[in-house]
Amino acid sequence: MSIASLINRLPGGVAQGLIWGLMALGVYITFRVLKESDLTVDGSFATGGAVAVVLTVKGLPLFVVFPCAFIAGLVCGLCTGLIHTKLKIPAILSGILVQFGLYSINLHIQSSAANVSCNPDKYNVLLSLRNIPKAIIIGLIFAAVLIVVMYWFFGTEIGCAIRATGNNNAMAKAQGINIDNTKLIGFMLGNGLVALSGALMAHYQSFSDVSMGRGAIVIGLAAIIIGEVLSEAIFKKGCSFYLRLFFVVLGGVVYYLIMVLILWLKVDSQDLKLATAIIVMLALAIPNFRKGGKAC
């Protein structure tokens, strides 16, 4: 339990935290913009990883691998969105159904293997835990690009329509917005980003696993809430959309560093998920007990 070993683990924690932070940007679209709890992400994160690793092993170039993972995520979100809007099933249940079904789909993608590895010595990977500085830089580049694109998109006509849908269904319909469509787009983009970060994670850890997305929604929520608590502490009042997105990614990094710290404290790794659940519960509860705070 030496300080040196903790410091040694920090860069790796930052790299992984960045990837979880990118995933949290996807969760942000459904949870904060659409104001729906979308549990699809536990499945679509693994789908992104599976697609990326399988295509990488097939020898496809990176500029094919990552867009394909993103598209796979779009399809996952489309399924949840269609079940929710066309079959009128609550969003949270639609997400659970798709996530459950995706387990089988992910096994199919991996040709029935629970996990598939892509050794960086043999295959062309974008990032890997063997080169942590590079992984961090790539994570930062992805974060910067995604934040700029999201900022632009949610300022467009259709982006504003999606935000209005999340804000107020009645108002959106009265302004001629087809809220089925805007919800579909939101679910798709959210899961597209989640799958993209699943692909990054799979490359980083050199394998994909059908259960690698387990708890992703909880980590995403943790990142969002930690980011909001931090930004509120620093800026007191609301801050710009750019900064809010930045703090979501930062929240992912902080979350993962807390995990590194907990592991360093030699907490039994089987208690890690319980610890996460408690941290997220507290983070979700704090705003509700503060004066003037709004419920999540």
Binding site: E157, I158, C160, A164, N167, A172, Q175, I177
Partner: peptide, 24 residues
Amino acid sequence: GSAADMWIEENLALAKRRGQHRGL
């Protein structure tokens, strides 16, 4: 009648596009 988390001008812009195609 209006979206609480959005700005006054954004609400007006949404209304201005009532019945029109919303693109990028």
